[in-house]
Lab assay of single mutants.
Amino acid sequence: NPITQSQFVPLGEVLCCAISDMNTAQIVVTQESLLERLMKHYPGIAIPSEDILYTTLGTLIKERKIYHTGEGYFIVTP
């Protein structure tokens, strides 16, 4: 039996792509809307728990890849 190979993409990278897409579409990015986006637009991805999502978003903020305001999460533009 051949083994199907899937590509590994770090969660942080997927979140940045999803946040960027949602920002472009002017969709408010909350943790809930982000999870919905992942389920709908990234089939096959293991949906992270709320704790993992929260921690990963926190890491992306520390790395200055995203920022959070009262209006949601946004990509940091250079």
Rank of each mutant, 00 (worst) to 15 (best):
I47W: 05
S6K: 10
C16G: 02
T77A: 08
H41P: 02
I75D: 04
H68A: 11
G44W: 09
K65D: 01
I47G: 04
S20C: 03
N1I: 06
G44L: 07
H41R: 08
V9K: 14
V76Q: 06
Q31T: 13
I61D: 01
E63Q: 12
L15W: 02
Q26C: 08
C17W: 11
C17D: 15
Q5E: 13
L35P: 02
I66S: 01
V14S: 05
Q26R: 10
V29R: 00
Y54C: 14
Y42Q: 05
P43Y: 08
Q26K: 13
P10R: 13
L11D: 04
Y67V: 12
G58D: 07
Q7R: 08
S6C: 10
I61A: 05
Q31H: 06
L34D: 01
L34Q: 02
C17V: 13
C17Q: 15
E71N: 13
E32W: 03
L11P: 02
A18T: 10
N23R: 02
Q26Y: 02
T55I: 11
T4W: 08
T24R: 13
E50D: 08
L11N: 00
I61C: 10
R37N: 07
K65E: 02
Q7E: 07
H41I: 06
I61P: 00
G70V: 12
T55M: 15
E63R: 07
V29L: 01
A46P: 15
G72D: 07
V28M: 09
I61H: 02
F74L: 04
I45E: 05
L38Y: 02
Y54D: 13
T24G: 09
L15R: 01
P48G: 05
Q31W: 05
T56A: 08
G58P: 02
F8K: 07
L34W: 00
G72F: 01
S6R: 12
I47C: 12
I19F: 01
V9G: 11
P10S: 14
L15E: 01
I45R: 07
F74C: 06
R37K: 05
H41L: 06
K40A: 12
I45Q: 09
G12T: 13
I52C: 10
Y67M: 07
V28I: 12
P43G: 06
Q31G: 11
L15P: 00
P78Q: 09
K65V: 06
G12N: 12
P43N: 08
P48V: 03
Y54V: 15
T56L: 09
Y73D: 03
Q31P: 15
T69R: 07
L11C: 02
E32V: 07
R64D: 13
Q5D: 12
E63W: 04
D21H: 05
T69Y: 03
R64P: 01
Y67D: 06
M39A: 10
I3K: 15
H68N: 10
I52D: 14
T30V: 00
I19A: 00
Y42M: 06
L35N: 07
L15K: 00
L35Y: 15
G58W: 05
E13P: 06
I47K: 10
A18E: 10
G44I: 04
E63H: 05
G12A: 15
L38T: 01
P48N: 04
G44N: 05
E36P: 03
G12K: 09
G58C: 15
I3W: 02
I27S: 04
K40M: 12
C17T: 14
T4C: 12
I19M: 02
L57F: 02
N1C: 10
T59I: 13
T30F: 00
I27T: 06
F74K: 14
P48E: 09
C16Q: 14
C16E: 06
S49N: 14
G12F: 08
Y73C: 02
E36W: 04
I45A: 07
G70P: 14
V76P: 04
F8R: 10
L60S: 02
I3A: 13
I66R: 00
E13F: 03
N1W: 03
K62T: 08
H41C: 11
H68S: 09
H68K: 11
E63V: 03
M22L: 05
T4A: 09
G44P: 08
Y42C: 07
F8T: 07
K40R: 10
R37D: 04
S33N: 10
L34A: 00
V9I: 14
R37F: 12
T69M: 05
I19E: 02
T24Q: 11
A25P: 00
C17Y: 08
L38K: 00
R37A: 08
R64F: 03
R64E: 13
Y73N: 03
L35Q: 14
T4N: 15
I75Y: 10
E63S: 09
E50K: 15
F74I: 04
G12L: 12
E36Q: 08
P48W: 07
E71M: 14
Q26H: 07
G72H: 01
L57G: 02
I75F: 08
A46Q: 06
V14G: 03
T55V: 09
S33K: 12
E50G: 13
Q26A: 08
P10M: 11
L38M: 08
G44F: 08
A25I: 01
E50T: 08
H68F: 13
T59R: 14
P2C: 11
Y73H: 03
M22T: 01
E13Q: 10
I27L: 09
S33D: 03
E13T: 07
Q7K: 11
P43I: 03
S49W: 06
M22C: 01
A25K: 15
N23T: 04
G70A: 10
L53W: 04
G58Q: 14
E13G: 04
T30G: 03
N1Q: 03
F8G: 14
Y67T: 09
E32Q: 13
Q7T: 12
L57C: 01
Y42R: 10
P48L: 07
E13L: 03
Y42T: 08
E13C: 03
K65I: 04
S49P: 06
P48Q: 02
E36D: 12
S33R: 08
V9E: 12
L34H: 00
R37V: 06
T4D: 06
S33F: 00
S6Q: 08
I75C: 14
Q26T: 04
L34V: 03
T24E: 09
T30P: 00
I27H: 04
G12Y: 09
S33P: 00
G70Q: 13
T24Y: 06
V76S: 15
M39Y: 14
R64G: 14
I66G: 00
K40H: 11
L11V: 04
I19D: 00
E32K: 11
G44A: 10
G70D: 11
C16H: 05
V28D: 06
S49G: 08
E71T: 07
Y73S: 01
L57I: 06
V9S: 13
Y54K: 15
I52E: 13
V29P: 01
V14Y: 06
E13I: 03
K62R: 10
Q26W: 01
P48A: 04
V29M: 00
Y67F: 06
M39R: 13
Q7G: 10
T77K: 12
F8I: 10
D51Q: 11
T56R: 03
I27M: 09
T55R: 13
G72E: 11
G44C: 08
A18K: 01
F74G: 06
Y42N: 15
G58A: 11
Y67W: 07
T30W: 00
R37W: 13
E71Q: 14
H41A: 09
L53R: 02
I27F: 04
E36R: 10
T4F: 10
T56F: 05
E13M: 04
E36F: 06
T77V: 07
I66H: 00
F74T: 07
A18F: 09
N1K: 05
E13S: 06
Y73G: 09
S49E: 07
Y67N: 05
Q26M: 06
Q5I: 08
T55H: 08
Q31C: 14
S49T: 13
T69W: 02
E32I: 04
G58K: 11
L11R: 00
Q31Y: 12
S33G: 04
E50C: 11
I3G: 12
E32F: 04
Q7H: 08
L35V: 11
L53K: 00
Y42A: 06
V14F: 10
